[in-house]
Simulated scan of single mutants.
Amino acid sequence: MTPNENPDAELQRAQAVLGGDRYRIERLLGRGGMSTVWLAEDTGTGRLVAVKLLNRDLSGDPEFRERFRNEARAAQSVSSPNVVDFHSYDDQPPERGGGCYIVMEYIRGESLADVLRRRSTLPEHLALDVLEQTAHGLSAIHAANLIHRDIKPGNLLVTPEGTVKITDFGIAKAAEAVPLTRTGMVVGTAQYVSPEQAQGRQVTPATDVYSLGCVAYEMASGRRPFQGDTTVAVALAHISKPPPQLPQTVHPHIRELIGIMLRKDPERRYADGRELARAVLQ
Rank of each mutant, 00 (worst) to 15 (best):
I166L: 13
V49T: 07
Y106Q: 03
P160I: 10
P94S: 04
V103E: 08
R27K: 15
R223F: 07
Q248W: 01
F169I: 04
E218Y: 03
S221Y: 04
E105C: 05
G137P: 04
V158I: 15
H125S: 14
Y89E: 02
D272L: 12
A74V: 10
S111Q: 09
L236Q: 14
V203L: 04
A16L: 11
R119Y: 11
E275G: 04
T167C: 15
E71A: 05
I239E: 06
L116D: 04
L116G: 07
Y210I: 06
S120N: 06
Q248H: 11
G154N: 05
I171V: 15
L116M: 13
T36V: 06
T231R: 12
H136F: 12
N55V: 01
E176W: 02
P247E: 09
G137T: 04
K264D: 00
V158N: 04
Q202L: 10
Q202F: 04
A143L: 05
T231A: 15
A50Y: 11
A74K: 07
L122F: 02
V187T: 05
P81F: 13
A140E: 11
R182K: 14
D91A: 15
V103R: 11
D91I: 00
K264M: 03
L58A: 08
A113H: 13
P179K: 08
A75Q: 13
A74H: 09
M261C: 15
G60L: 02
G109S: 09
I166M: 02
H125Q: 13
G200P: 07
R274F: 13
A50T: 11
T167D: 05
K152H: 06
H125I: 06
Y101H: 12
I171A: 06
P81Y: 14
S111G: 14
L48D: 12
G188R: 08
V250E: 03
A127F: 10
I171E: 08
H253L: 10
V37N: 07
R24A: 15
M261V: 05
V164F: 09
P3I: 09
A206M: 07
L157V: 09
G32C: 06
I166P: 03
R263T: 08
I102P: 04
H148P: 05
L276C: 08
T134I: 09
V209Q: 08
Q245S: 14
G213P: 06
A75C: 12
E5L: 12
D8A: 14
I141P: 11
A140W: 08
A235Y: 00
A9R: 13
R149W: 01
G184K: 03
C214A: 15
P243D: 00
L116T: 07
K264V: 01
V17H: 02
A198Y: 08
V130N: 03
